Simulated assay, not measured.
Amino acid sequence: MPSRFVLLACVFFSFFCFSKPLKIEIVSDYNPSYGESPGDLATQLLLIIARNLNNEMAIEFVPASREREWRELKHHENVCLYNKVRTPERETMALFVSLPLMAFPSNRLILRNKKFVSIEVTLKKALSMGLRIGVTKGRSYGLEIDDFINANTDRLFIGEGNDSAFRLRQMLVQGRLDGIIEYSSVFVTDFPSEDVLKDISFHAIGDTKATIFGYIACSDSKVGRKAVDLFERTLQKRKIQDLIIEAHANLFLPQEEVFISNSLKTAFSIND
């Protein structure tokens, strides 16, 4: 009888332990302590996915700059980041979910009062014109652009801090920069005024991919692997995939929308 009691107690204890939600820290620039709903789609989608994990994961947002995000992930076993571009360098320090959370048209070179520049231009050519171009420290713009930035840091204006991307957009509008590397839709959302846009031109950057995906990345640890498996399983659900594709509708300029939708369907292996 005592042995049966011990066995039952062990089974109950094991069930209790394994039924506890996995505790994950989401390090990002979103701070829920302000009591505001997230304005960006990536955070909204992440929260929807977290709710669909059926209490298997408990997430807590930890505010940090883009640069600090990766330091936190490297030094702690229970950290996840989201909406991150997958690069060979990042894959050496993090475990990535294989299915995307977000999709974007490739970054554009956005210029002010430089409409003489051709509609597609390489960054090398832009710098050879003497243009002062701003980029955000710690942000990945895609493999090709990242490589160019790393090789030409001294010729670019490097913005730092949590809101550096927004400040760069402001500096462009104020004429303190000639150009920035940014998504066209992000810029238009911040500055929809025709007065501003009449001086702005959007240029495709030569030698870059047409679509960039944003993924969830977690600590390279046992806890991180469990988190990746849970996110992966949820993103494999057709209802979640449909929701993500729907959420991208009207998010970008009309000429880019169809391509984004098709790219997501391909990533999710949706054929209908």
Rank of each mutant, 00 (worst) to 15 (best):
C80E: 01
T92L: 10
R66M: 08
P63A: 08
R86D: 12
P88S: 13
T87R: 06
E89C: 01
T87S: 11
A94S: 06
S106T: 14
C80I: 07
E60Q: 14
H76V: 00
A64C: 10
A103Q: 06
V85D: 01
E91T: 14
R66L: 10
R71S: 07
M102A: 00
Y82K: 06
K74L: 13
S106C: 11
P105C: 05
R66D: 02
H75R: 14
R68H: 14
H75Q: 13
A94G: 03
A94M: 02
F96K: 09
F104R: 00
L95W: 03
A94D: 00
L81K: 06
P100D: 06
K74F: 07
A94N: 02
E72C: 03
V85A: 05
E91G: 12
W70V: 07
H75W: 07
E72G: 00
L101Y: 00
E60W: 01
C80Y: 01
F96T: 02
R71N: 09
H75K: 14
V97I: 10
E67Y: 09
A103R: 01
E69C: 13
K84F: 05
A94T: 00
V79C: 10
K84H: 09
M102R: 08
S98D: 14
M93S: 12
E72T: 01
T87K: 00
N83Y: 01
S65V: 11
E91S: 15
F104K: 00
V79E: 03
C80H: 03
E67K: 12
P88A: 11
R71G: 01
R71D: 09
P100I: 02
V97D: 03
R71K: 11
L73A: 12
F104I: 00
M102S: 04
K74N: 12
V85I: 15
V85Y: 02
E60I: 14
E69M: 14
L81S: 04
L95A: 08
W70R: 02
E89Q: 11
V85R: 08
M93F: 14
